[in-house]
Design a protein around this nucleic acid. Structure first.
Lengths: 344, 344
DNA sequence: ATTGGCGCTCCACCACCGGGAGTGCTGGCA
DNA sequence: TGCCAGCACTCCCGGTGGTGGAGCGCCAAT
């Protein structure tokens, strides 16, 4: 008795494993008869029932009602993915195919194609947290659009381009704009905007009045551009979840789920957690602490550039998903994204 | 008899109008009794039934089954919006509030905030077709990211910024890059890429070999950047449609609808049609020719910059929508967008 | 320890039925 | 001629009850 409540003996583990696999495969509660057929063990349904009763007592499985088969509980899933699951990594050829699907023209395309790839491969929703930026800039440029309307172009340290229109009080000549850009580029490339602000006030008092005005407008715009291109999450293939009958039966739950998708910040918090850990991480059901996800699982993996974690990729699908397929997909996507971003 | 089949007399029109209004208001088939109460006419249900029978014969209304009230047919809706509907324009204050909600930092933000605004105000899905671009460029710039990796920054005639990374065969010095950019900016600003290509081959044979290589790489990249920022459609608030019980009852229809949203090109064709007409246009049910939309209506309006139509805004919702509210919202959004884009 | 057997429970499906809503029709009235 | 009260009819909707099947728990036998 004491032994059973602590650890599962081998037979129980095998039965739990096949039970979860069966349930994942066809979505029906699985009964003792089915289990005796598929387990490989040569046991009668009656014996299996005993084990199932134990498993139920320990909280790994549950029955929806008196006379149905059993289905895994969240705890059952957890044990399954932690210790019973065997994933087969993708082979070289598949990886190469995937690599070809990533669009490397710029960061935004790269990220959204990664997200799209995840959703296509898993038929669930793909999510990618955009790479964290360091905050500095590599290059800055002002372009006169009209009187008192200037286009600010900002190349971040990571090689992304931001742009925004700023209204000025006075109108500047193209030459002045070039001069201002030169000052910033030559003196401050690589610095954070805060730092620039400090140093401009300290060192460059000799700047002409109108110049500092332009500068501070630029810095404000730069700040804002940096902040609104802060971390964000790109989601693809939400539609796929409409087809999953586990989810689409509860219309209200489904709505909650889709509302969550619009609430980027909440999702971001969850996904950021996973960037602390290494490798693939799995959140089952409500483990993430969000009610809308209580029938979902989230499989995530951090990706990195130059060895530093800068974001997270992941898949959101029903708890009843084929983990052994999804896990390597998420894993490899994170790695492909890392390498695509690193060679810049 | 001949008369009834041609035009509706005043009484029939009034009854049709209140019937549609009632149905839009509470979604229940409306019977003769309800109609006699709400029409304002002092008629007994029995008399009303006669008129309803006529309306049914003419195809304006239909009954879901023998003993239910009547609901408008698509043709009934059409007649309603064409000749019975009275829209009340928004007042000045509301318009100003809305104007404040548009984010004018750059075109992309502008468009997506407009789309978001539409969905927020109507509680349906908002769509905006991004502005057509003229194809030329205003400014071009090369920035060296690494050996043989160059960041191409392209400012379109409309003041938007495109960027993309290009791989070169040889590595260029920063000075060479500046020179190349200067050549393009000084000689070809405002031209289309095709034109540039032609003229480069014709006039500038004296360019150094390596320069023309860089140039043609840039032109190819520019072409592609231009083409993948071609017309696109931004959709917001699809989630809202999950809450509409007219739509969410048929799970499969709902899925079709959401699939349509992912199929940008199909949607684009529909929305482009509306940019030919002037002012608000309404597609009811399958009028658009797309099955997924057969329980939906699409309300669109073109928007323009400098007097030329460059795109379309719209709302997609259930056919049973409050047109008198949605129409002015779409109208005003198109106008606000036009004016925000024009002052650049 | 394992197993066949038995009784039990619960769900899913179907058929049935009564109330309610709304219609079409008809005959009478101004 | 236009309007209206009354009536019979049709259909949907919700609740009720019965039945078959799947699966379990328990127990006695091996």
């Amino acid at each position: 008795m004491a032994k059973e409540s602590q650890a599962l003996n081998e037979r129980a583990q095998l039965l739990l494993k096949t039970l979860v696999e069966r349930y994942i495969a066809d979505g029906q509660p699985v009964g003792s008869r089915a289990l005796s057929k598929f387990s490989g063990l040569d046991l009668s349904p009656a014996s299996i029932r005993n084990v199932m009763a134990d498993l139920e007592e320990m909280g790994f499985i549950a029955s929806p009602h008196t006379s149905a088969g059993r289905i895994p509980t969240p705890r059952g899933y957890r044990f399954f993915v932690d210790t019973l699951l065997t994933v087969k990594p993708l082979d070289r050829i598949e990886i190469n195919q995937l690599e070809g699907q990533l669009q490397v023209e710029n960061t935004h395309k790269l990220v959204s194609s990664a997200s799209h790839m995840l959703s296509e491969l898993t038929h669930f929703a793909g999510v990618v947290v955009t790479p964290r930026r360091s905050g500095g800039f590599r290059h800055i440029e002002f372009l006169k659009l009209a009187e008192k309307r200037i286009l600010l172009i900002l190349v971040t340290a990571e090689g992304d381009v931001q742009n925004r229109i700023i209204q000025t009080e006075k109108s500047y000549t193209p030459a002045e704009l070039v001069e201002a850009a030169n000052i910033l580029n030559q003196n401050f490339a690589g610095c954070s905007f805060d730092e620039i602000r400090r140093r401009i006030h300290a060192e460059l008092k000799q700047l002409r009045e109108d110049m500092t005005q332009l500068m501070s407008a630029a810095l404000a715009a730069g700040d804002q551009a940096a902040s609104d291109s802060a971390e964000d999450v790109v989601i693809s293939g939400e539609v796929n979840l409409l087809g999953i009958d586990d989810l689409s039966s509860n219309m209200t739950k489904l709505r909650d789920l889709f509302n969550l998708f619009e609430h980027r910040t909440t999702l971001l918090q969850l996904l950021d957690v996973s960037s602390c850990a290494q490798g693939v991480q799995i959140f089952i059901g409500g483990e993430a602490g969000l009610q809308p996800l209580d029938e979902c699982s989230v499989v995530t993996a951090p990706y990195e550039v130059d060895g530093k974690v800068v974001g997270t990729v992941g898949v959101i699908g029903p708890t009843r998903m084929a983990y052994e397929r999804v896990i390597p997909i998420v894993d490899i996507t994170a790695k492909l994204l890392s390498s695509a971003l690193t060679q810049r």
